[in-house]
Design a protein around this nucleic acid. Structure first.
Lengths: 77, 77, 77, 77
DNA sequence: GTGGTCTAGACCACT
DNA sequence: GTGGTCTAGACCACC
């Protein structure tokens, strides 16, 4: 299981991890992210904290959330 | 008691109210906001939702939170 | 496990069952209903159908949904 | 109400009381302690003093604090 | 006492 | 079943 063990807030650590995965191509442009629950399981944190992190990236336009469908990496730069 | 009764999320409604109060001078530049708990009581919502709204305004630089002291309106434009 | 085996739509059967439980005092005025998931399990139906039934009773004012807290029987006649 | 009336600092008296309760099994291995607020009320001391005492026992590994959940007695010797 | 973070677990909209 | 919102109530850092 991936772990977040820094001193920073879990939300901010997760935000950084997702940004890295987008940059590295692990989460390609336009692709669908794992569900919030899957990310919560992967990192051993609550779904609420995951959605808080996703909210930051939605706010900044890096991710796009679609109710009932999923969360997607913004296709265009 | 002030009420938030729109269809928008409570967090976003509160964000808008605080922005209005800053613009109107009710919360002057550099002044300290009521505590999160006071705002929660005023609007009849949970402190968590208040801090979510404040987080948006911190993220955008409109407010500055200082642990143990309070939340302040950013002094300068 | 309770069962709904009539010819009517499951949603309407469940609506009727909940109304009976309110009338009988099994769900007293002002009390909190079981969660949607618990009701789904009790009757062996999908959570979606439960929320549909609850929506009917919210619409009619018989139930009151409170975000983050639960669904409650309307306290007063 | 329990009282701490020794000459030692309240924090150290409380630390000792908690150690005794762990040793006696009143706070079993792996169990959740009362909240800091409850302990403060029980002993008639400030929440700050309680968190200071808990910090000592976290530091020594006797207790484990879990954000959003509570403080727990370390399960294993 | 204040702000900030986090959890667990609700409801609800939408697919 | 997914995302999004909200509650209640923890711990913790700081003043």
């Amino acid at each position: 299981m991936a772990t977040l063990d820094g001193i920073e807030p879990l939300r901010d650590q997760l935000t950084a991890v997702i940004r890295e995965r987008i940059a590295s191509g692990e989460y390609p442009r336009g692709s669908k992210l794992p569900t919030a629950r899957e990310l919560a399981d992967e990192f051993g944190i609550s779904a609420r904290t995951v959605t808080d992190a996703l909210a930051v990236l939605r706010e900044s336009g890096e991710l796009i959330g679609v109710r009932g469908r999923g969360v997607f990496v913004r296709p265009t730069d």
